[in-house]
């Protein structure tokens, strides 16, 4: 059991990159692509998050004898 610090940095980095891409695309008039980029970033982070939450639920189930 370790604290995966790199996961925090990964999510933060994805957020910063998506926000920069979003602004660049929005300024150059490509609103649809900006929305799509934002959505893609969201899905990527959601996949990472779902794995972590599944781990937590499994641990709670094992530990508290469900």
């Amino acid at each position: 059991m370790t604290m995966e610090i790199d996961l925090i940095f990964k999510i933060a980095a994805i957020g910063i990159i998506v926000s920069i891409l979003n602004q660049v695309l929005a300024r150059s008039g490509r609103e649809e692509q900006a929305t799509m980029t934002s959505l893609a970033g969201l899905v990527v982070v959601l996949m990472m998050l779902a794995q972590k939450i599944a781990d937590l639920f499994d641990l709670v189930k094992n530990l508290f004898e469900f």
């Binding site: 059991m1 604290m3 995966e4 996961l7 925090i8 999510i11 933060a12 994805i14 957020g15 998506v18 926000s19 979003n22 602004q23 934002s38 970033g41 969201l42 982070v45 959601l46 990472m48 998050l49 972590k52 939450i53 781990d55 937590l56 641990l59």
Partner: peptide, 19 residues
């Protein structure tokens, strides 16, 4: 800038700290 990703970051850290 990205409120939704910020929320997900806090959820991930919550899960890790809870683990």
């Amino acid at each position: 800038q990205e409120k939704d990703i910020s929320l997900m970051l806090s959820m991930a850290v919550c899960a890790m700290a809870a683990i």
